[in-house]
Design a protein around this nucleic acid. Structure first.
Length: 623
DNA sequence: CTAGGGTTAG
């Protein structure tokens, strides 16, 4: 009987206007939805409690709290503020527009809100997504004290408050208390915890949760894929992707974004290419996220032609698409193209953000466009009101430093309004290596290790600076320091990707099945180089395993190159990745080999890619 | 009210 009465009153509320409004909002056509409202008033129809939730939802989706505020006024006038859907709509709308205070006011001023689970849920989720973690938790506690029932949606809103490592403890205590509520078996809640642990860097916890799930949904798989990708565990991502396939789980665009990002980090172009195929076969071709990920993947794998063609083929390019292509050209030394694209982007009406500036500044730095870079740095603040962060200062120090303007770089650091971090000083240290400035290097090193005492890269860098200056005392001092701090340099690792298989090499490696042939190729190359270019500057080899140029074990880059030459045909691409900066000798070697062999050698310097550091350097299959 | 997504320097 009660139900009957209710549905009757609902029917009175669902006018044709409301139905249409709801349909448009459902289809995410928010602008069209909102345009119905003035039409409705012109027709003399009054809005009611069924109109506003969808109007507010549209304002929330468009992040338009000003328009939402006007609806708030109308709601008061019409007198339907006490409707639960209207209240939650208002709270959520203000939160999505970053006006959490307004949301709180709605909550506080309406006695009814404070008795409804949905209103608590809306505000808790709002606090969490506006990174007001403690407010979210406080409200959750209050909810418990007031005896308001908690449901799974409450948790889905609250858990994202703990997505930073500093909140891990809070997050895991929440996790424990969910057992009490009995929501630990709900897939959505577990998914949410998986993401939380991943974002806190607790990969093992996330994995445990995932493994123990009796029922996994696509989102569970995706949470793992993205989580691994975010934690730099690219090989785990590819493994999981393969498992999905074996379990008959069909990937969606979100899965593929994570997979592509991992391909980019590994330089695994052939897997990336297979993913592109999958995208086309699944009809995801116009997904902007996927296209951005493809641009990034091809660019990082050194295939700028493909990156450009994906970019050109996009129906609409976002700031991220531009950033990816600009960064791609920049990292491969095509600074002029990167700058050209940056200008084009601005001309097309897209405003650069901090990340876009990092890309263009680093592009200038790599291509020696020093003044251009300085100009952009000024422009950031002047034209776009963007405050430069640590990463921008690092780029600038690198830019000035590479150009040999060390004093200016140092002055820039000293003028910084924020305390420079390790990366900024590290950039100066790197510049000191290029320009052989021992004195400044010592200063920079001192500051660097205040911030990153465990980062061996910097110790090695200073040691090499001393070595260049024939300062054996200095070298020894650093070696002792490293020993005292128990820092051990992981061997540099280069690898070549061939037909979906990765072939890694470490210095002096003899483990590869083709090892004999590789060394034979290297010997041949040495002989040719000797003939064509004369004797290399250093030739103090004693054993056959020692490097042609450097006199130590054969560098991993060279082994990778030889392997690449051995297994690819003319014009093929050899991708080399190393976890420390590629040395000058190897650069020289690449140049010579490119001339002799007529191959395109793409060399990638990948300091950040550390997934092979502690692993064994044996071949690993992707598929 | 509600779980998963792209870009950056050294």
């Amino acid at each position: 009987m009660k139900n009957h009465r209710k549905s009757k009153s609902m029917n009175a509320l669902s006018t044709p206007w409301n139905t249409q409004l709801r349909e448009l909002a459902k289809r995410c056509q928010f602008l069209q939805a909102l345009s119905l409202y003035p039409q409705m008033l012109r027709h003399g129809d009054r809005p009611n409690a069924f109109t506003f939730p969808f109007a507010l939802k549209s304002c929330a989706a468009l992040s338009h709290p000003i328009l939402g505020g006007q609806f708030h006024g109308q709601i008061i006038k019409v007198g339907c503020i006490f409707e639960p859907f209207v209240q939650t709509g208002l709270i959520s709308m203000y939160c999505k527009g970053s006006l959490v205070e307004n949301a709180r006011k709605v909550f506080d001023e309406n006695f009814h809100s404070r008795k409804l689970t949905v209103c608590y849920n809306a505000l808790i989720s709002g606090y969490a997504s506006n990174s007001k973690c403690s407010d979210a938790v406080l409200l959750f506690r209050q909810m418990n004290e007031e005896g308001i029932p908690v449901n799974s949606v409450t948790l889905l809103g609250l858990i994202p408050a703990c997505v930073s490592p500093i909140n891990l403890e809070l997050g895991s205590s929440l996790h424990c208390s969910t057992l009490k509520y009995g929501f630990d078996s709900e897939v959505s809640v577990v998914n949410c915890f998986i993401t939380m642990y991943m974002k806190c860097g607790s990969v093992n916890y996330a994995q445990k949760l995932f493994d123990e799930m009796p029922v996994k949904g696509l989102i569970s798989w995706n949470a793992m894929v993205s989580g691994y990708a975010q934690n730099g565990l690219a090989t785990n991502v590819l493994e999981l992707y393969r498992n999905m396939d074996m379990n008959g789980v069909r990937p969606d665009p979100i899965t593929l974004v994570g997979v592509l990002s991992s391909c980019a980090n590994l330089g695994a172009q052939s897997v990336g290419h297979a993913v592109e195929f999958k995208i086309q076969a699944s009809g995801f071709t116009n997904n902007p996220f996927l296209n951005n990920a493809l641009i990034n993947m091809y660019a990082r794998c050194g295939n700028l032609t493909k990156a450009q063609s994906v970019f050109d083929g996009m129906p609409e390019r976002t700031l991220v698409s531009w950033t990816a292509i600009i960064g791609g050209y920049g990292m491969h030394g095509h600074g002029e193209i990167a700058v050209q694209l940056f200008k084009e982007m601005i001309r097309s009406g897209i405003e650069p953000d901090g990340t876009a500036f990092v890309c263009v500044l680093s592009a200038c730095s790599h291509a020696g466009l020093t003044d251009q870079g300085l100009e952009y740095f000024k422009m950031m603040k002047r034209n776009y009101r963007l405050e430069p962060g640590q990463e921008h200062y690092s780029c600038m120090v690198d830019l000035l430093g590479r150009a040999g303007r060390l004093k200016e770089a140092q002055n820039l650091i000293e003028s910084m309004p924020i305390k420079p971090d390790g990366a900024v000083w590290g950039a100066l240290l790197g510049a000191c290596k290029i320009h052989k400035n021992v004195e400044l290097a010592e200063l920079a090193f001192e500051r660097v290790i205040e911030h990153e005492p465990e980062n061996i890269g910097y110790y090695v860098l200073l040691s090499n600076i001393y070595s260049d200056a024939n300062n054996s005392k200095g070298v020894l001092r650093i070696r002792i320091m490293m020993k005292e701090k128990k820092l051990k340099k992981d061997p540099g690792c280069s690898y070549v990707e061939l037909k979906g298989r990765v072939h890694p090499f470490i210095v002096g490696d003899r483990n590869h099945p083709q090892s004999d042939e590789i060394y034979r190729v290297l010997e041949e190359l040495e002989a040719i180089i000797m003939q064509e270019f004369g004797k290399p500057k250093k030739d103090n080899r004693e054993e056959s395993n020692k490097d042609f140029f450097t006199g130590v074990g054969v560098h991993s880059e060279k082994l990778a190159v030889a392997f690449g030459l051995l297994n690819t045909t003319t014009g093929a691409e050899v991708v080399i990745i190393k976890n420390l900066r590629i040395c000058e000798d190897c650069h020289l070697f690449f140049k010579m080999v490119s001339k002799i062999a007529d191959r395109q050698l793409t060399v990638r310097d990948a300091t950040r890619f550390h997934h092979f550091r502690n692993g064994s350097c044996s071949c690993k299959d992707y598929w």
